[in-house]
């Protein structure tokens, strides 16, 4: 049973993000990149399955991009068996659908029984990868997975709904799973191991050709929500305060089933 975990870099949202001069993308000059947090969950789940003997190997794959080498070495340090970098020659940002097409092409030369990836990423406003990849490969897919068990030719997964309700689904392999959370928190990769692997391990590469551009909605502009530095105070009588709070909740869409 070969597991492939598809990971990607995303801009580190801990850092200040600026909108680029043309307003069509974030400014990518000074930002740093980190592994998509949900991909970390996907990797952890795969590694746990391997340690439990449910799977034989874990291969991580990523489209080439800034910071991707670090991410792949970190994945190796955590225990992945192999790392593959998919060379494509495109400039960021790469639409998710193009990502799916490039990965589907690359996966032709990578043996796999089950593909894991993160349920979503910080910049996939044009659709999540798991369903797009499933559609591109003609595999079944499940998003928002919080547990995986492997049985003969099947993955038995739990998919989580609001309020903790879960559906236990069985999926025929090969399949694509969008992982929301691993059964345990992602493990630590000691820096010395990462640094040692950077000297000794090699990242495999697979080259794929450019895809014809996928249909997409056109970006008009990016903006940052106006953030007030300090709180806006809700004042007045008790009734007014309560009404004020309710309208804040309502505007944020967190008030359920009212009216």
């Amino acid at each position: 049973m070969n597991l492939v975990v598809v990971v990607r870099e995303v801009p580190d949202i801990q850092e200040e993000l600026e909108v680029a001069a043309d307003g069509k993308d974030i400014d990518r000059t000074f930002i740093s990149f980190v592994m998509n947090e949900f991909d970390e969950q996907a990797l952890e789940e795969a590694l746990v399955l391997k340690e439990e003997g449910q799977a034989d190997s874990v291969l991580v794959a990523a489209l080439d991009g800034e910071g991707v080498d670090d991410i792949l070495y970190t994945a190796l340090a955590k225990g992945a068996d192999e790392a593959v970098k998919v060379i494509h020659g495109l400039e960021p940002p790469i639409p998710t659908r193009v990502r799916a097409a490039l990965l589907a092409a690359a996966l032709k030369s990578i043996p796999h029984d089950l593909i894991f990836t993160g349920v979503q990423s910080a910049e996939d406003w044009d659709g999540q990868l798991a369903p797009l990849l499933g559609a591109a490969l003609d595999y079944p897919w499940v998003e928002v997975v919080t547990a995986v068990r492997l049985e003969d030719g099947l993955a038995v997964v739990e998919k989580e709904f609001k309020g903790g309700l879960r559906a236990e689904l069985e999926v025929r392999l090969p399949a694509v799973l969008g992982i929301q959370a691993a059964t345990k928190p992602p493990r630590y990769a000691p820096v010395s191991r990462i640094r040692q692997l950077m000297r000794t391990a090699t990242l495999k590469t697979v080259e794929v050709n450019e895809m014809s551009p996928a249909p997409a909605a056109k970006i008009r502009r990016l903006s940052r929500p106006v953030a007030s530095r300090s709180a806006e105070f809700i004042e007045g009588s008790l009734d007014e305060v309560v009404e004020g709070l309710l309208s804040v909740f309502r505007n944020a869409g967190v008030l359920r089933g009212e009216g």
């Binding site: 801990q14 740093s32 980190v34 928190p185 493990r187 630590y188 000691p190 820096v191």
Partner: peptide
């Protein structure tokens, strides 16, 4: 312990990761 992959208490792991990154 860390290099042989034993679990690191989560608070400490977070501090390590933050220090490495930021």
């Amino acid at each position: 312990a860390i290099n042989s992959g034993r679990p690191v208490p989560p608070e400490l792991q977070k501090a390590f990761e933050n220090i490495a990154r930021y």
